[in-house]
């Protein structure tokens, strides 16, 4: 390292069209000055987002992670045929992909909603 990494500005001007007015002063100041209120606000946002991420990940882990166990414990599922295709192939080669995209889409919507709520909360 011959040069220090330049400090970067974190977050910049309102880009999202959903923000109709500039955020209020009080909530922002609380965040900015690391007051107890600000700390609480951030903690609640992080907890909400983490909870959402873990719930989604939990569903994926249960469904996808449960498949090998299902195949191991209920051997007939390895040979079951659905729509002319073996069940494991139908699920792992085809259905899993749209399911992953759908899960991601739901997650993005919820995560963005939590962020809007946070902005509104700070904005009071």
């Amino acid at each position: 390292m011959t040069e220090p990494v330049p400090r970067r500005v974190v977050v910049t001007g309102p880009r999202s069209p959903t923000v109709r007015r500039p955020p209020g002063r009080q909530g922002l100041q609380a965040l900015d000055e690391q007051t107890a209120v600000g700390e609480l606000l951030v903690r609640s946002l992080v907890r909400a987002q983490l909870g959402l991420a873990l719930r989604t990940a939990g569903v994926v882990a249960l469904v996808l992670g449960g498949l090998p166990l299902l195949f191991a414990l209920v051997p007939t599922t390895r040979d079951t045929r659905v729509l002319g295709l073996a069940l494991p192939w139908l699920v792992l080669a085809v259905l899993v992909y749209p399911a992953l995209v759908l899960t991601g889409w739901v997650h993005v919507r919820l995560a963005e909603r939590y962020e809007r709520e946070f902005v509104e909360l700070v904005d009071t």
Binding site: R7, V9, V10, V11, T12, P14, G38, R43, L45, F118
Partner: peptide, 20 residues
């Protein structure tokens, strides 16, 4: 760490001052 967490998780519409 509190400021870093804010930086990582706060949505962009909130205009914040640079850290540090």
């Amino acid at each position: 760490v509190g400021r870093t967490m804010l930086r990582l998780h706060a949505p962009e519409p909130l205009v914040l001052s640079p850290p540090g």
